[in-house]
Amino acid sequence: MLEGKFEEASLLKKVVESIKDSVQLCNFVCSEHGITVQAVDDSRVLLVSLLIGNEVFSDYRCDRNITLGVDLKSFAKIIRCGGNDDYLTLIAEDSPDSVTLVFEDKNSDRISEYSLKLMEIDNEFLKIDDMDYDSVIKMPSIDFQKICRDLSTLSESLQILITKDSIKFMAEGETGNGSVILKPRTDIDKPEQSITVKLNNAVNSTFGLKYIADIVKGTSLSNQIVIKISNRTPALFEYKLQSGYLRFYLAPKFED
């Protein structure tokens, strides 16, 4: 049996809102370590990998592995019914055909209970090994979101160039071009404002902005985003959770 209680419903709300436009049907695999999701979007360009570690929950028990096949659009509708500050408990039997969500308002005795029907979802699992990346950058997630949104007004593609002392984001379109250059900086008072670059090799990679527009929906999950890029391989965009992560793997675009 699964019983996982979140101190605040807002965390699961944010997670679901962050991924529901990338993938619709996905299996939430629950084990003693927490909940994991891996799913690929229909175009097979973007992969979502989620770990909500058991330490995120104020109470957590899961005696044996349980898979919850979830339609995220329906899940999002139910999860919006609870308040952000409510306790949220997920409950499922060992071989469930539904999952129960219990919201508890901390300021009153109100308890709301919803159940979501589960589905058999037959998705392929991709094996992703730990890779050495040419470059790893860490920057404020909100800045990355703004840069991508601004440049998406000009082009469908975002070019990222990384050297040891700068990160350059570029977009070239029919109506004009744009670029934003960032320099590494350490902010001791506000570490979440820092920008770091670890470089093994200079990077010049291009990605589809429509996928990046979905990735930056994870912005509210973490102050910082970690971007790991190698030339000619998928890049990893990561929002760290208190225990766990939301990762997106995005395949690059190449010059024809």
Partner: peptide, 14 residues
């Protein structure tokens, strides 16, 4: 023009 690659060109199915 640019070609969009897909993830199955890099990652193996388990």
């Amino acid at each position: 023009g640019r070609i969009q690659f897909d993830l199955y060109q890099y990652f193996q199915r388990e």
